[in-house]
């Protein structure tokens, strides 16, 4: 790859971030995430009266001094969670100036770094019509370079079938987790069924919808033959102002339909242009929506 995905400076900035989730995490391994299990951590959760059998190490002696009753301090046990990054690796992603695919890889790498830095277990899956290739679940910051190598090696080819590909992904398990989909949403079979499946799998889902500037403002005019890069079809049109207006309207309809669907399903929907920097996506778009904090 001619360009390194992420600079070291940027990675340093990412260390302070973590992925947030609205759901409490269930899991076995101790991690950085609050879980419903109360346990040993530094984060105070509640008090309860001591009953015999409780761990007397947690008796709050200051409260006993004040109330002359024994109270136990309860702490939220922090658990690690699985962050799955779905990367759309269809041919349509390998397009645009700046390239959508490279941009998606940058975001994926950044998200993986954030997740691993927060002791979350992290998986990456490259999807086109099916799961093209997936990375086994990694944990620990030391695994980042392996993940980066994996992301860097993803090829963009094939058609897009987002729903089918997500359903065919077997790495989700039964526990809740975080799923982040990096895609242009130009999917043959749509994406909504895939989102419903993820929610069924108790995934806190975020769609980062990547668009090239050329998709938002088509730069062509007069007679052109539009060739679908994924090879579906071609279309001869003469681009005039009325056609451009119709295109803009179609784009707006598409975005608002996505936004409405995601709002209704409680999914984070973040449309971004590949022209903005990856830092702006992380620190502005994702931060604003609360996906990272």
């Amino acid at each position: 790859m001619a360009q390194t995905l992420l600079e070291q400076d940027f990675l340093n900035k990412l260390e302070r971030l973590s992925l947030s989730t609205r759901m409490m995490v269930k899991g076995d391994a101790g991690g950085n995430r609050k879980s419903h299990a109360k346990g040993s951590s530094v984060e105070f959760s509640d008090f309860k009266e001591y009953v015999p059998g409780d761990d007397f190490r947690h008796i709050d002696w200051n409260a006993y001094a004040r109330f002359e009753r024994l109270f136990l301090k309860l702490f939220t046990e922090e658990r690690e969670t699985v962050v799955t990054v779905f990367l759309d690796c269809s041919k349509s992603m390998d397009w645009g100036e700046p390239n959508k695919g490279f941009f998606a890889k940058q975001i994926a790498a950044a998200l993986v770094y954030i997740a691993l830095s927060n002791f979350d277990r992290t998986a990456v899956a490259a999807l086109n019509q099916r799961v093209q290739i997936s990375m086994p679940i990694l944990s620990g910051k030391q695994s980042f370079w392996r993940a980066l190598k994996f992301i860097d090696g993803i090829d963009f080819n094939g058609k897009t079938g987002l729903s089918g590909a997500i359903k065919s992904y077997e790495g989700l398990g039964s526990r809740s987790g975080i799923s982040i989909i990096l895609t242009d949403l130009f999917s043959e079979d749509g994406y909504k069924e895939g989102i419903k499946y993820l929610q069924y799998k108790k995934q806190d889902t975020t769609i980062i919808h990547i668009m090239a500037p050329q998709e938002m403002e088509p730069p062509w005019q007069d007679s052109v033959r539009l060739l679908d890069i994924e090879g579906y079809e071609y279309r001869d049109i003469t681009i005039k102002q009325d056609v451009l207006s119709a295109y803009k309207k179609a784009l707006d309809d598409f975005l608002s339909d996505n936004r409405r669907f995601c709002y209704e399903r409680g999914v984070h929907y973040i449309p971004v242009s590949s022209a903005v920097g990856v830092d702006r996506v992380i620190f502005d778009s994702l931060f604003a929506t609360g996906v990272v904090r």
């Binding site: 992603m93 242009d184 007679s223 060739l227 890069i229 279309r235 119709a246 295109y247 179609a250 784009l251």
Partner: peptide
């Protein structure tokens, strides 16, 4: 004479041309 232009998808164009 159509200038050949590769696009990521004709999906949106199809939608647009329904109107025009």
């Amino acid at each position: 004479q159509h200038e050949d232009v590769e696009v990521s998808s004709t999906f949106l164009w199809r939608m647009a041309l329904k109107d025009v």
